[in-house]
Amino acid sequence: MGGRSPRVLLTDQNETIKAAVSLVFSDSHHFFHLWHVLENIPRRLDYLSIWHDTFMEKFNKCIYRSWNEVQFEKRWWKLIERFNLREDEWLQALYEDRKLWVPAFMKDVSFAGLSAASRSESLNSFFDRYIHGEMSLRDLIGKYKSILEDRYEEEAKANFDAWHETPELKSPSPFEKQMLFVYSHEIFKKFQMEILGAAACHLKKEKEDGSTVLYGVKDFENSQDFMVEWDELKSDIYCSCHSFEYKGYLCRHAIVVLQMSGVFSIPFKYILQRWTNAATSKIPLSEKLDEVQAKVRRYNDLCRRAIILGEEGSLSQDSYNAAVGAINDALKQCASVNKNSENVSRSNLPAPLAIQGVAGVNHYGTITCGQQLPVCKVTNTNNPKNKFWEGARGQWRNH
Rank of each mutant, 00 (worst) to 15 (best):
G3M: 05
G3W: 01
R4L: 14
S5A: 10
S5R: 00
S5K: 07
P6H: 00
P6K: 01
R7S: 13
L10A: 02
D12Y: 01
D12M: 06
Q13H: 10
N14I: 13
E15I: 11
K18G: 02
A19Q: 06
A19F: 06
A20Y: 04
S22V: 09
V24W: 05
V24T: 05
S26M: 06
S26V: 02
D27I: 09
S28V: 08
F31H: 12
F32T: 00
F32S: 07
H33W: 11
L34T: 12
V37D: 00
V37H: 01
V37I: 15
L38T: 05
N40Q: 10
N40V: 03
P42T: 01
R44K: 15
L45H: 01
Y47C: 06
L48V: 07
S49L: 05
S49Y: 11
S49T: 06
I50T: 13
W51P: 00
D53N: 08
F55S: 02
F55D: 02
F55I: 14
F55A: 00
E57F: 12
E57D: 14
E57K: 15
K58T: 09
K58P: 04
F59W: 12
C62G: 05
C62N: 01
I63F: 05
I63R: 03
R65Y: 07
N68F: 04
N68R: 05
N68K: 07
